[in-house]
């Protein structure tokens, strides 16, 4: 293909009713509520923003140590520390109103179906919230989160209940810690999910061999970072060929090429997580790298890359467009 000038690349992608200016957004829990990163660059550059998991009431999170580095990745067991939905609405989200065309996606977590429903109901009144990301995949809280994401029936029940209360589109974030992620994806689609994001972290552990004890105070934690990228790409590839709803790729994205890989696997957009910790400018850098890759490869529309390497997913996508 003939290379193009970088300015001629159309980075826009459609996610449900949202036309994103580019396919890159930070992943929940890796960006807090955006305030800290706004010191480094204009958040208006992002395709969208996914803010930290929000629960009905304040959560203090887990004891420390909560993080540990691993080869090309890290473990975390934060435990959903957040000020609760009321303070999130009053104190954490308003600063995001000043950005034009920055869809705000709020990640919702809890310990019981009723909690999730109540949080979603309260977020429903906020014109600032463009979509809900349903967190049924957090591995770091004892009761809740992942238990809903690893049981087909519970996931479906949760999605159905939340969909009934939600005024915004609901994106369900899937756990990789299951035997058949395609089956979970299908269960969520059948229950009414508008879109899926995958993957959340993989459950892991490191041991401090000198102290003869797990490194994290929580024992286990969620593995993220470039180490999990191949697992995430495989799961996106599989799910995109299985469901008709859009899929957002998450897991180890650190470069524009990684983002392109997820798009070609069938994702309509990507989330950037751990790379924000390594490089505070990761998201805008990745956006520019996607643009440059497309220009150099003669790709004029980034949307044309979606499912380019996944014929079964591409077929489903074309059927949906008809």
């Amino acid at each position: 293909m003939t290379p193009l000038p970088a300015n001629d690349v159309d980075l826009r992608v459609q996610l449900l009713s949202l036309m994103l200016k580019n396919p890159v957004m930070p992943a929940s829990g890796c960006f807090s509520f955006g305030r800290e990163v706004a010191r480094f660059y204009d958040l208006g550059l992002l395709g969208a923003i996914v803010v930290k998991a929000t629960t009905l009431t304040e959560r203090m999170g887990n004891p420390t140590p909560r993080v540990a580095e691993t080869p090309a990745g890290m473990l975390n067991a934060i435990g959903l520390q957040n000020p609760g939905v009321e303070r999130v609405l009053e104190e954490e989200l308003p600063h995001l109103a000043k950005y034009d065309n920055l869809p705000v996606i709020v990640n919702v977590a809890g310990t019981a179906v009723e909690d999730y429903v109540e949080v979603v109901r309260r977020l429903g009144d906020s014109p600032l919230v463009a979509a809900i990301e349903l967190n049924i995949s957090c591995p770091n809280v004892k009761c809740g989160g992942i238990q809903f994401g690893t049981d087909r029936g519970m996931a479906a029940e949760m999605v159905a209940a939340v969909k009934e209360a939600a005024t915004q589109p609901v994106i369900v974030k899937l756990s990789p810690n299951v035997a058949d992620i395609g089956d979970m994806a299908q269960a969520c689609e059948e229950a009414g999910a508008d879109a899926l994001s995958l993957i959340n972290t993989l459950v892991g552990m490191r041991i401090d061999i000198d102290r003869r004890t797990p490194l994290l105070a929580n024992g286990t934690g969620g593995l993220s970072g470039p180490a999990i990228l191949p697992v995430a790409v495989r799961m996106v590839y599989e799910v995109a060929a299985r469901v008709r709803i859009p899929v957002i790729g998450v897991g180890g994205v650190a470069s524009g090429r990684d983002a392109v890989e997820f798009l070609q696997a069938g994702a309509v957009a990507v989330q950037v997580g751990t790379a924000n910790f390594t490089d505070p400018f990761a998201c805008p850098r990745i956006i520019e790298e996607v643009r440059d890759w497309c220009a150099a490869s003669g790709v004029s529309r980034v949307a044309d890359l979606i499912a380019a390497a996944n014929p079964a997913a591409l077929r489903l996508r074309k059927e949906r467009a008809l």
Binding site: S32, V67, F277, P280
Partner: peptide, 16 residues
Amino acid sequence: EERMGCGFGICVGCVH
């Protein structure tokens, strides 16, 4: 002294 992640407040790893 707490084990730190991002260093500027987005990961909430190093709390006390």
